[in-house]
Simulated assay, not measured.
Amino acid sequence: MTKATIYHNPKCGTSRNVLAMIRNAGIEPTVIEYLKTPPSKAETKKLIADAGLTVREALRQKGTPFEELGLDDESLTDDQLLDAIEEHPILLNRPFVVTDLGTKLCRPSETVLDILPGQKGAFTKEDGEAVVDSSGKRVGQ
């Protein structure tokens, strides 16, 4: 049985779709609502590194104080960006998922399928897009 942890925002459709796909794989994940219980700076740094991303790639701009904080300034260090994420957790893009098979920033939501053992049946996203067929296979692959 694969373990999974999702850094989740229940107000985000992508995050809800990812959570549903994890459950469709027969896994009940640990759900961390990261806006209520933000990861530490060290945990955030590890999540980002384990996902193979740069800190800048993990920043969320839309609906955040990204611009008003001047985070588009390329001279800012990773440490400074991580400080901003720690102070404003909404700046961390979501959802991050950690399983025995890896860590991913799951945007688009079907990216989570890369780190799940398999789906138990069909799955259609909230917008109606089918991503898994009735046999549990990823659509379009």
Rank of each mutant, 00 (worst) to 15 (best):
S134C: 03
G63K: 02
F96K: 02
R94W: 00
V97M: 07
T99A: 03
D79E: 15
P65W: 00
K125A: 01
D100M: 01
V112T: 11
R60T: 04
G121C: 06
D72V: 00
I48T: 09
S134P: 10
L82V: 06
L53N: 03
Y34W: 12
C106A: 10
V31K: 12
G118R: 08
T44S: 15
L116N: 07
E110W: 01
L116W: 01
K36A: 13
L53P: 15
G118M: 04
P108F: 06
V98N: 10
I48D: 07
I48V: 15
K137M: 14
V31F: 06
T30L: 14
Q80E: 15
E57I: 05
E86K: 12
K41A: 12
Y34T: 13
V98M: 09
P117C: 04
R107Y: 08
K62H: 11
G118S: 08
A51I: 09
S75E: 15
G121M: 02
G26K: 08
R56H: 09
G52T: 06
L82F: 00
D114G: 03
K120Q: 12
I32V: 15
S40P: 01
S134W: 01
D50K: 10
K36Y: 01
R60I: 03
L47W: 03
D50P: 10
T37A: 11
E68C: 11
Q61C: 06
K46I: 08
P39L: 07
K45Q: 15
K62R: 15
E57C: 07
D127G: 13
D72A: 11
K104G: 10
E28D: 15
P117R: 08
I27F: 04
S75D: 09
T103V: 14
I27H: 05
G118C: 03
E87S: 14
F96T: 11
M21C: 10
V131G: 08
V98K: 15
S75V: 05
G70V: 10
L47F: 03
S135G: 13
L53W: 00
E74D: 15
R138V: 07
I115Y: 01
G26E: 10
V31D: 05
Y34K: 10
G121H: 01
R60M: 05
V55I: 15
T77M: 08
G136C: 09
L69G: 07
G118E: 02
A42R: 14
I27N: 04
P65N: 09
L35H: 00
S75K: 11
G128C: 09
I115K: 08
D50E: 14
E33Q: 14
R94I: 12
A84P: 03
K41D: 03
K125Y: 02
F96A: 11
K41S: 09
T30S: 13
R23A: 06
E33C: 05
